[in-house]
């Protein structure tokens, strides 16, 4: 086996198929997007090279920055919600009764498709017949909020299902990581008189720090490029109040035929994600992995 695997040709042969597919489906389109971003193009006819003008327009486009602010808000909320997921996982991994059941309960929203979740929450938020407003009127609130129509709250109304949707995913990751914490460490800490809080904070968390870093990156990048639920529930409306970068990009490219500009937005989003990932890794970098 070792002999085979050290043969460069064989290695190349094994790596090649995945590499080709990845090139074809991911990296080449990225390069093309960058290229289209330099064009004035309606996505249909011929292109015209305009250099960096799309990017110049982007910098002064207030609608874009508004959508970027919404995306960043989503990223912040997602990261904050990670704390909640972590607490739930800590409790679940503490070998309580029914932990397995709860884990499954939390995971189920992840199994639903985004469109189904969106439809479900649109029903919940329905201004007159929705569960939410029915509940509020039954306890005496006469003018319950218009969850998806009020420009001041629509964004937060959509954040809730998004965060709900991904709860299971992160809880699963944390749970798995916490289960990998060696039992001896927990046992010996307990013998030394550590409280459950101390065990969690001082022993378990440092040991899964690597996983936490990864989830922060996942949550931030996932939020920045988030699209589906928002598109189905409001299409970025009313009047751009729930627009995010990805939906703005889509509208530019496909609704208003500014394919070049849409590509520039997409490419900018990619760069933004790369930079933010880099910053997060720098900020959370520790000198060495904690080991006990």
């Amino acid at each position: 086996m070792n002999k085979v695997m050290s043969d460069k040709k064989v290695i190349a042969l094994y790596v090649l198929p995945a590499f080709l597919l990845l090139m074809l489906l991911v990296y080449i389109p990225i390069v093309l997007t960058g290229y289209y971003g330099l064009m004035k193009w309606d996505g249909i006819g011929s292109m015209e090279f305009i250099g960096l003008e799309n990017y110049r327009n982007l910098i002064v486009d207030s609608a874009f920055w508004r959508s970027a602010r919404h995306s960043l808000l989503l990223a912040i909320f997602s990261v904050i919600s990670l704390i909640g997921y972590l607490l739930v996982s800590l409790v679940l991994s503490g070998r309580i009764k029914g932990a397995d059941l709860f884990r499954k309960v939390y995971l189920i929203p992840m199994l639903l498709s985004s469109v189904a979740i969106a439809q479900l929450w649109m029903r919940i938020y329905h201004p007159t017949n929705g569960v939410m407003n029915r509940l509020l009127t039954s306890i005496g609130i006469e003018q319950p909020p218009l969850w998806l129509a009020d420009t001041n709250i629509v964004l937060y109304s959509i954040f809730i299902p998004i965060i709900w949707q991904y709860a299971g995913f992160y809880i699963l990751i944390y749970y798995a990581a916490l289960r990998n914490v060696p039992n001896e460490l927990v046992e010996s800490a307990r013998i030394d008189g550590a409280s459950p809080w101390q065990i969690g904070y001082k022993i378990k968390l440092p040991l899964i720090a690597g996983v936490i870093k990864v989830t922060i990156v996942l949550a931030v990048v996932g939020s920045l490029k988030y699209f589906d639920l928002i598109w189905v529930m409001t299409q970025g409306g009313p009047n751009g109040a729930s627009e995010v970068i990805a939906s703005y990009m889509y509208k530019q490219a496909f609704t208003t035929y500014n394919f070049g500009y849409g590509s520039a937005v997409g490419f900018f989003l990619l760069i933004l994600c790369l930079i933010i990932t880099y910053i997060i890794r720098k900020l959370t970098a520790t000198k060495e992995e904690v080991q006990y």
Binding site: M122, T128, A149
Partner: peptide, 21 residues
């Protein structure tokens, strides 16, 4: 207009009409 019209799809509005609401 119906409450929350800016957040309602045409389909949802139609069903309000068709349910005689």
């Amino acid at each position: 207009f119906i409450r929350g019209f800016n957040g309602l799809t045409d389909q949802e509005a139609k069903s309000e009409f068709m349910n005689e609401n």
